[in-house]
Structures are given as structure tokens and as C-alpha cells.
């Protein structure tokens, strides 16, 4: 099944990623169409974060390649472990306003309409009244809302979210999922790493089940079957120090 190139956001060709020659993601084939809302599922160590990091160019493929139909600056990435130094004296408003970076640049000032836009976005994620608080005084959920507000202002075509609901309560999670569904309705492409299978089933039309290699990729109800989940769980997570060189033929693995 070949789709026209223009309707694809990402194409994987025999993509193998890993650390120190040991693969974390093996021989990944497939394509993600534009406007897809894909949940990336799988046990810890399945290579989910590795895959997202590869897409933003943070680690190089050991083998194979991927093609992005989206320009690098139109990709937004929400890392799992935020590097944000919350002790730094920056207000919520300033942090969220940094989402406008691409329009304002490193040196330009914010216009009045852009200030209003930032305020409206802060209101949209439910942080009104906290604009002038230092980010260090926010709770975990509030900080995640602020990071989502920044994502909204970034206005990107492709969004890569790595476990956005880790240690976030269910009410905040529901609010943030509503934002993701908004983005989906606007035609953006979204890949989100999630562990909550029930939420994946409810909100995500497509699912990529990873366990060091693709277990299944397609419509969520067909992917998240008991048998496939069990297979994903069974994949060992330990690195075999003396693993032989992989000679699998690339074409065998097409999904």
C-alpha cells in the first residue's frame, strides 16, 4: 500500500536506532500520514523515547533512514524529562511567551497583540492569575500546563510528546488531552508516547506498539489486542553484551 509522498508526514525505511551498537529500535518500516494522531505504546525500554529523539535529530540512526516532510523548525518536541531549571527567576508569562520565539526571534520585542495572544493562551490552559508567578512556585501539573501553552504558541505542524501525562492527575490530563484533540482537529500531526492504554483506546485513532521493534502499527483497536500486548511485554529488556551482529534482511520486516 503506497500512499502519495505529499500526504505523508514521516516515512521510516529500515530505521534502526540504538546506543553503543545495541539496537533500541530495530528495522522500523512504515509511514505516518499527515494529520495522524498516533499513540506510541510499549513497555519501558521499548525504544519509544529513542524514536522521538531520532526524529528531532538528537541521535543518529545506526542503520536505515527516515524522511520528514515537515521542516525542522515546524516540529515541536516535549521531552519526557524537562531540562527546565525551575529555580531560575522567570515568570509564567515569560516562559509561555518564549513559544513565540519563531515569530519574535531572539531580539525583537512583543507587540501588544502578541502579549494579548500569550495571555489568551495562558487562559486557555487554565493558568489565569498565575502569569506573574515565578515558575518555581508552580505545581507539577501547572508547570505541564505552562509547557503546553508554550507548545500552542509554537504553532507547529508536527508535535512529538514524550509521556506528557507522567505524574499528572486525571483532571489535568483530561484538559491537556482536549488540547491535543484540538490540534488533531486543526490537521496537525501528533506522536505521543503514552502508557495509559485506556486513554489510548478512547482518544487515539492510531497506535504504534513498540518493543524494540514494531509489534504492530495501525488502527488502535487492531493494535492493542491482548495477544500483541503480551508479545510486547515478553521482549526482554536487558542488553545482551555478546549479541551477534544483526544480519536480518531489511525487506523481511515491512509492516
Amino acid at each position: 500500500m503506497k500512499q502519495a509522498e505529499t500526504t505523508l508526514a514521516i516515512q521510516f525505511r529500515n530505521l534502526t536506532l540504538g546506543y553503543d551498537r545495541h539496537p533500541a529500535v530495530h528495522h522500523l518500516h512504515g509511514a505516518i500520514p499527515r494529520g495522524a494522531l498516533v499513540a506510541v505504546a510499549g513497555p519501558n525500554g521499548a525504544g519509544k523515547s529513542t524514536l522521538l529523539k531520532a526524529l528531532i535529530g538528537e541521535n543518529r540512526p545506526l542503520q536505515g533512514e527516515f524522511r520528514l516532510a515537515v521542516a525542522h523548525e515546524r516540529i515541536a518536541y516535549l521531552p519526557q524529562q524537562s531540562e527546565i531549571d525551575t529555580s531560575f527567576p522567570v515568570s509564567v508569562f515569560d516562559m509561555v511567551a518564549m513559544g513565540l520565539w519563531r515569530r519574535v526571534g531572539g531580539f525583537g520585542g512583543l507587540s501588544r497583540s502578541q502579549r494579548d495572544e500569550v495571555k489568551a493562551t495562558i487562559e486557555q490552559v487554565g493558568l489565569t492569575g498565575l502569569e506573574h508567578r515565578p515558575i518555581g512556585t508552580l505545581s507539577g501539573g501547572q508547570l505541564q500546563r505552562a509547557r503546553f501553552a508554550r507548545l500552542i504558541l509554537q504553532d507547529c505542524e508536527l508535535l512529538l510528546l514524550d509521556e506528557p501525562f507522567n505524574a499528572i492527575d486525571s483532571r489535568t490530563t483530561d484538559d491537556l488531552i482536549a488540547l491535543i484533540l484540538d490540534w488533531h482537529a486543526q490537521g496537525r500531526t501528533i506522536l505521543a508516547v503514552l502508557h495509559d492504554l485506556e486513554r489510548i483506546r478512547r482518544y487515539f485513532p492510531d497506535c504504534l506498539l513498540l518493543a524494540r521493534e514494531v509489534i504492530a502499527y495501525g488502527p488502535t483497536p487492531e493494535v492493542l489486542t491482548a495477544e500483541r500486548l503480551a508479545r510486547a511485554r515478553a521482549v526482554t529488556e536487558t542488553f545482551d553484551e555478546d549479541a551477534p551482529v544483526c544480519h536480518r534482511h531489511p525487506e523481511q520486516e515491512a509492516v
Binding site: I75, A76, P79, S82, E83, F88, M95, G106, F107
Partner: peptide, 23 residues
């Protein structure tokens, strides 16, 4: 004065700055 914004962002969220800009 020129570097203020990139420097502040580089201090408190360097990975975000690397993502959005070459500065």
C-alpha cells in the same frame, strides 16, 4: 542587551532553545 533573551533561555531551558533556534 543583545543576548539577553537567548541567554536567559539558555540558562533556564537550554533544550528548548536548541529546538527553536540556532542561537
Amino acid at each position: 542587551a543583545l543576548l539577553y533573551r537567548p541567554l536567559v533561555l539558555e540558562c533556564f531551558d537550554p533544550s528548548y532553545l536548541r529546538g527553536v533556534s540556532r542561537l
